[in-house]
Amino acid sequence: MPDPGRVAALRDPWRRGPWLMLAPWLVGSLLLVGLPALLTLLLSLTAYDGISAPVFTGFDAYRIVARDPLAGRALENTLLFLVAAVPLRIIGALGLALLLERPRRGTGTARVAAWIPAVIPDVAAALVWLWIFNPLLGPVNLLLGALGLPTPGWLADPETARIPFVVMAAAGLGEGFVVLLAALKGIPPEIRSAAALDGAGRVATFRAITLPFLVPWLVVLSIRDTVVALQWTLIPALVMTGGDPYYSTLFLPQAIREEAFDRFRYGPGSALIVLLALVAAAVSVGILLLARGRGVTDAD
């Protein structure tokens, strides 16, 4: 098939080719994500009720948000949730991927099982967790009670109401698990077996070979999980608490939905969205700094 005489002529496709390959994603992303996101950013600088034309008001919307105690509460709740849920999800997914990497007895079932909570529809999953954390009848408190430990009111108590959300988010680690499983499978096996032959123990092999290989995946996953976790609470909160008791489970997505769609205040609503994006960006920068210089990254 290859004609050595045409190799020179084919050099051009290799210069043009990558851009052609990139085009559908690049154009699609800029049009369907970049542009609407930019519009939202612009809306946050306006007073817009969805009907009359938006009026430019500078940073007024941000001032309104800054003065709104509920927005502050929602931000605080969201950050508390984020700080607990994301590390749990990533560490859990990594642990499970390592545990279930090699096919042994029960691995197939366990892999599918680990995947399941991620694909049970939000509404049904929320109902399941509502039962698991039922303060009188749920298995968690029955177990705690049997052990003679205190039984919290969980969702009924402002002090503990966010914990079931964290646990529910952590249980839905199936997607991260699948990605890390695929990442582990993509490490050339001979590299790891070579390390094992060199007499490196399991832990040493993991730290020296496996982990550095996984770092890029872990970075992408952590950023993705941060963004997902920021938005994920909407349906579970609607089903489980509606923000109760007394705003202890009011998270940013619900605040955004109420501000923009219930009150038609797209200016402050958009400002809250920008706030959400800023939180995601700040956390992501942190993750990137943390991962810098560790593992096989783009810098090589």
Partner: peptide
């Protein structure tokens, strides 16, 4: 009360 209502 709040806990009993949440339970059932």
């Amino acid at each position: 009360d709040a806990v009993e209502e949440a339970a059932e």
